[in-house]
């Protein structure tokens, strides 16, 4: 394949591979944790971040397809389909996160949860159906049920739900539901943080609220493209790299805050009380009379002398 890609393209493609690698690693950590705990909560968390991961894979694969097979109609359609599907996976992280949060942060009733998922799925279903329909039957130069965001300087483009006219309701609705959900979770977490007595819990919850904030930002950064960042090649690349970093940060923080691996817990906890007393940072507590009286130097060796002390006490 004697193929010449624009130099800007490489940034996207390499960033895609890095994002994929890091996210895969984190997902494996989560899955290992799941097999240890086997809780529904962990599974929901895995699904939340797996959705982010699938979006990353689909988007990067689509870029590769478009870059490697320019002008191939079928591959182009496949690439567009993949990108749109990726967007919907990303949007669906909101729903997974909502159900996960329902086990740990909030307690919505079943009716509300069902309503939430139904409305959510309706938006995704309608937006998806119409977009696929337009990709396969419509005119690519004039897309109606999806929009093409041209990445200046790159050999491929971003496909996104429609960003003009009344059709904006589709992405707007998903965005609104997502924002309300995340905002609610952040407020709730902040409140819990304030109430938490235990230092580790407090810090853990703070990490959790940051991770939710970053998850929300992943949706927001792409909006920069809608406002025209895609027209300047280097800015477009920067936004893309930035987005990748935000996605990775969101998942790392989520892993740390929710799973709270042992090394982090110990680090947040600080030195143990006994270690502080032992090293003289805290004063020694008064000795118990009973312990002193009966064994001035508590039995320190297995010599029978010590045991005689014990016996002679009787």
């Amino acid at each position: 394949m004697a193929l010449v890609l624009s130099s800007y393209s490489y940034y996207y493609l390499i960033a895609g591979i890095i994002n994929f690698t890091v996210l895969s690693f984190l997902l494996v950590l989560l899955i290992i944790h799941f097999f240890r705990k086997r809780t529904v909560g962990t599974f929901l968390l895995i699904m939340t971040y797996a959705s982010v991961w699938i979006n990353e894979i689909l988007m990067t694969l689509a870029f590769y397809l478009e870059a490697l097979y320019p002008g191939n109609e079928n591959y182009l359609k496949a690439a567009q389909t993949m990108q749109m599907t990726g967007v919907f996976f990303l949007v669906y992280t909101i729903n997974w996160m909502y159900f996960f949060a329902n086990r740990h942060l909030i307690r919505d009733n079943d009716l509300f949860k069902l309503l939430y998922t139904s409305i959510f799925s309706a938006f995704v279903g309608v937006a998806g159906g119409l977009a696929y329909y337009d990709i396969y039957t419509g005119d690519r130069n004039n897309p109606f049920w999806y929009s093409i965001i041209e990445l200046a300087g790159a050999d491929f483009n971003l496909n996104y739900p429609p960003t003009q006219g009344l059709r904006l309701i589709l992405i707007g609705g998903m965005f609104a539901i997502g924002s309300i959900t995340y905002l609610r979770l952040i407020v709730r977490t902040t409140r819990l943080t304030r109430k938490a007595k235990d230092l580790v819990t407090k810090k853990g919850l703070r990490i959790v609220s940051l991770s939710i904030l970053f998850l929300w930002l992943t949706g927001l950064v792409l909006a920069l493209y809608i406002f025209g960042a895609n027209r300047i090649p280097w800015l477009s690349v920067l936004v893309y790299l930035f987005r990748g970093m935000i996605v990775i940060t969101a998942v790392i923080l989520g892993y740390l805050g929710w799973i709270m691996p042992e090394w982090l817990r110990r680090r947040l906890r600080g030195k143990a009380w006994i270690a502080k007393v032992y090293t003289g940072k805290l004063p020694e507590p008064p000795k118990s009379k009973e312990n002193i009286e009966k064994a001035p130097k508590p039995i320190t060796s297995p010599t029978s002398a010590n045991q005689i002390v014990e016996i002679s006490e009787q």
């Binding site: 507590p285 118990s288 064994a295 508590p298 039995i299 320190t300």
Partner: peptide, 23 residues
């Protein structure tokens, strides 16, 4: 005392007041 050669010690403690725990 029947523990023989085992190296042992016995302390009274309270995990509520902290008595004896450090020692």
């Amino acid at each position: 005392p029947s523990l023989g050669n085992i190296k042992w010690a016995c302390f009274v403690t309270s995990a509520i007041t902290g008595e004896g725990i450090y020692d």
